[in-house]
Design a protein around this nucleic acid. Sequence first.
DNA 1: GCCATGACGGAGC
DNA 2: TGCTCCGCCATGG
Length: 110
Amino acid sequence: MSSYDAIYAVVQQIPLGKVATYGQVATLAKLPGQARLVGYALYRVAAEADVPWHRVINAKGEISYSPLRHGMDYVQRALLEREGVQFSPEGKIDLKTYLWRPDLSSASFN
DNA sequence: GCCATGACGGAGC
DNA sequence: TGCTCCGCCATGG
């Protein structure tokens, strides 16, 4: 157990067809500015937890590729496209349309 | 216990 | 608009 638990909780709140940035998740997880920790946390959990890690992208609105994933980066894109998320020719996501906006009815925990 | 690195973000040039 | 540098915290050697 650790602060990452909050991160997982936030990620699990991301609705299908929507995406959130690392910074956004970090802030919602009470860890403003710790975007790196979010990435680290997801990296550690993606292998076993039921966390929709594929819905978390960087502030540029694109998937963060990394050699750590052994080249399975395309899986993330495939999962998102399967959820209805459109990618630009550059592989970017239109944040104006798909960025998750918590505060409507989610209300998180309070 | 210390050093280097990393799924990032934002400011500066 | 695009690239570079610094900062944050945790993990691994």
